[in-house]
Design a protein around this nucleic acid. Structure first.
Length: 201
DNA sequence: CCAGACGTTGTT
DNA sequence: GTCTGG
DNA sequence: CCAGACGTTGTT
DNA sequence: GTCTGG
């Protein structure tokens, strides 16, 4: 992973879809700056098969009366996600991958360090898309409209992020995708939260 | 018992 | 849905 | 987090 | 200044 002053992603979405192994995804409109409540491309396992879906960023728990809570549930801390009422149900049964080409993070220490106030764009060093550990949820509105949402897991910073910011999305290497997606592997998943989340990528 | 929260971030 | 605070 | 708004009405 | 929406 590396950070640079914010610029455009390095992979086209067509290339991205190919790398991720999915067909072109007609109902997702790529964006250079996704914000909470906007759609993100996700991957989950249904009947033992990976499938792609689009979910609004910002998890709305199934019990929510007001969907606005979703905007505040755009991230879930790795150290508490298993217990928090808003996330624990999804954590047990609805882990997903969130697929992006990169992400922005603002410089938390710009004033103290005398740096310009600006966001940085982070990608993997080789420019491949990256895959966040996420959760998804399904919420039914009073009008019986179903809304699928997602959140991303965050952990502490690695050595690259640390000078800029104290949080970092959990980026799963490809050998952990199936582990994270397996709904039957609670113990392993819990282990991931405690251990792998804090390793460096 | 009922009512209300349920989350993250930041903080010169 | 489930927990906490009053 | 940042960006952008920042009002009024009504009241089974 | 502070809240809301993205």
């Amino acid at each position: 992973m590396c950070g640079r002053a914010a610029t455009a992603p390095v992979l086209s979405w067509n290339e991205y879809y190919q790398v991720m192994g999915f067909d072109l995804w007609l109902n997702f409109k790529p964006s250079y700056n996704v914000t909470p409540t906007q759609p993100l491309p996700c991957i989950r396992v249904e009947d033992g098969q990976r499938s792609a879906f689009v979910a609004k960023w910002g998890l709305i728990p199934s019990w929510a009366k007001d969907p606005k809570i979703g905007a505040q549930c755009s991230q879930a801390r790795s150290d508490t996600v298993a217990e928090k009422p808003a996330f624990r149900a999804a954590f047990k049964k609805r882990c997903c991958l969130v697929a992006v080409t990169g992400f922005y993070e603002w410089d938390q220490h710009h004033i103290v360090k005398g740096r310009p106030k600006q966001p940085y764009y982070f990608t993997l060093q080789d420019g491949r898309p990256m895959t966040f550990a996420g959760l998804w949820e399904s919420w039914v509105s009073p009008e019986q409209e179903t809304i699928e949402t997602c959140t991303i897991i965050t952990c502490g910073p690695n050595e690259i992020m640390e000078p800029l910011h104290d949080r970092l999305p959990v980026i799963l290497p490809s050998n952990l995708w199936d582990v994270w997606l397996d709904p039957g592997m609670d113990a392993t998943v819990a282990g991931l939260v405690k251990d792998e989340f804090h390793t460096r990528q």
